[in-house]
Write a protein that binds this DNA or RNA. Sequence first.
DNA 1: ATGAAAGCGCTAACAG
DNA 2: CTGTTAGCGCTTTCAT
Lengths: 336, 336
Amino acid sequence: MAPTPARSATIEDVALAAGVSRAAVSKVLRDAYGVSDAMRERVTAAMTELNYRPRIAARAMRGRTFTIGIEIPDFGNQFFTRMLNGAMRALADTRYQVVIAPAESGSRHGLRAIEALVDRQVDGVIAVSPRVTSEALERIAVHSPVVMFGRHDTSDAYDTVAGDDVVGAQAAMSHLLELGHTRITHLTLPESDEDVPSPHGLRLRTYRAEMESAGLADQIVVVRTDEGQEAAYRTMREALEVGAPPTAIFAAHDELAIGTLRAVAEADRAISVVGYDDVPIASHPALGLTTVDQPGDEMGARAIELLLERIAGRTDAVHEVFEPRLRVRTSTRRLA
Amino acid sequence: MAPTPARSATIEDVALAAGVSRAAVSKVLRDAYGVSDAMRERVTAAMTELNYRPRIAARAMRGRTFTIGIEIPDFGNQFFTRMLNGAMRALADTRYQVVIAPAESGSRHGLRAIEALVDRQVDGVIAVSPRVTSEALERIAVHSPVVMFGRHDTSDAYDTVAGDDVVGAQAAMSHLLELGHTRITHLTLPESDEDVPSPHGLRLRTYRAEMESAGLADQIVVVRTDEGQEAAYRTMREALEVGAPPTAIFAAHDELAIGTLRAVAEADRAISVVGYDDVPIASHPALGLTTVDQPGDEMGARAIELLLERIAGRTDAVHEVFEPRLRVRTSTRRLA
DNA sequence: ATGAAAGCGCTAACAG
DNA sequence: CTGTTAGCGCTTTCAT
């Protein structure tokens, strides 16, 4: 290949080649009103001839980019894959393309990734960032439509799509309590906080409330672990070695539950484990993880719908909540 | 303090507020030569005051965007998560941001996603697209640095980072043969083709070669399935019902292997299964999947290094190959 | 050390 | 139906 590449074709080159004006080319490009078939044909011919690709950056300076940005905190968590699938499907018949910005593991709340997306002129943002302050989000939402995934706050500036984490956590806890468990540990992330409107905050709060109303306040144990299966495994391996081990563990999400299952297997203990999300692997017979199913794909698709509505001009906020559903499998058993 | 601005601040607003020229602000922004400390201070003050964020799209029209685009074919495959982690880590200390474009499941080869990235003016692209023709890639590589992940072709126009799939597949096959298996099925994707320089093409070819040189040419069985655990599960569930079932299955990657494991478990048969990649879940004791470990994070980090070199001006191609390593676990057993 | 000014490729009035 | 033209926000010579 030539080491000194020619610069690629611009709208002007196409116009020249087709013997028309730039405006005409632009109109063909955007399918705008007022182009004769003859002209359209010559222009498209010139475009393929020159291998023309419109520069989105140039378009961005005048109008839309037809790009949706999605911020994701952790690719290791397959729940977000479900969400993404739903989002992609909802966008399939539109002109929009998706770009995804992964939150750097360091800056744990993902604001940087959201801003990176906005700086790149996406037409709207879907973000999974329970820890970003609503002030920061509202500042962003002034200039760019925003739909937050998993949040339970109800700002006027952005929409939210979330699961009903109270109902879900209650289902998980009721299940364990009905099986006769009393020493139930909750495994969650370091930053989960009952006062933050995050899924994990709500699950934690619900865990506490359910333990208390079952008269088990003195049995409450909350273990914290870093994100990911591996970290959860190491944390629980240690946790199971000290003191009286629990008979059941309610993990804040499936990745943590799967890591826990590993620690439990190695410790060779009959400890029941419940997760949250119903990631695809959870139903694998080798794991048989009892978990709270969230309709991730529907939620992702709905988030896109809301975002497109906002892009189209809606200004009042919508806050949508999806119902979770307990899936009982073999990882939970009646207390012997 | 100004009221909430209808449109967000531009470089001009900052210049006005700081009482300097646009050029001066731009220089501060880019840390360019020739700015006094006093000026720098006033400008940065104005920037924070106005909550200024540079528009990458505008910058893109003149120079770099400091954005790396990564195209990924399947988020369900956790091997790509390993790759992404390595890539993110390698980029952590640079000015670059990552955006990821998922290949639409329809257009199975991901060219559209790569072009979406290039249209958005990324400074370089890493792509996982074994099926895109080298012609298409070379056309793109003329205008944008490209590193292909997993390909075994050696174009001059783009770099490649791949695992040694022949060695890896040989290791998998040798392992099964040494355990006494002779009826070994290979499970791969519909489009895998021995003549395409893709990982799966090579694994397929190696499977055939190893069977033949073991004198088992008449035992060769290749089963095709769509992408994903679920599809692999359904395919293998059916495949295990007809004819004489194999005693071992070599799956082209771990997601397929895990789906296979599910079918095997349900069929309640003692069939050995080997995967490829060593995704995180593979080592979980509940699965114990024997597999060929590829150093995904190193490979991702190396891909970034190569891309940055190309962005910096290197024009000769580099083709890097990483050595895989067999991980023997409980999913393979000596033939009874 | 600082600023004026010329574009980058595209869209969207507006004129013809 | 087609073309002219004025920017969008930024970088980058080139003067001063």
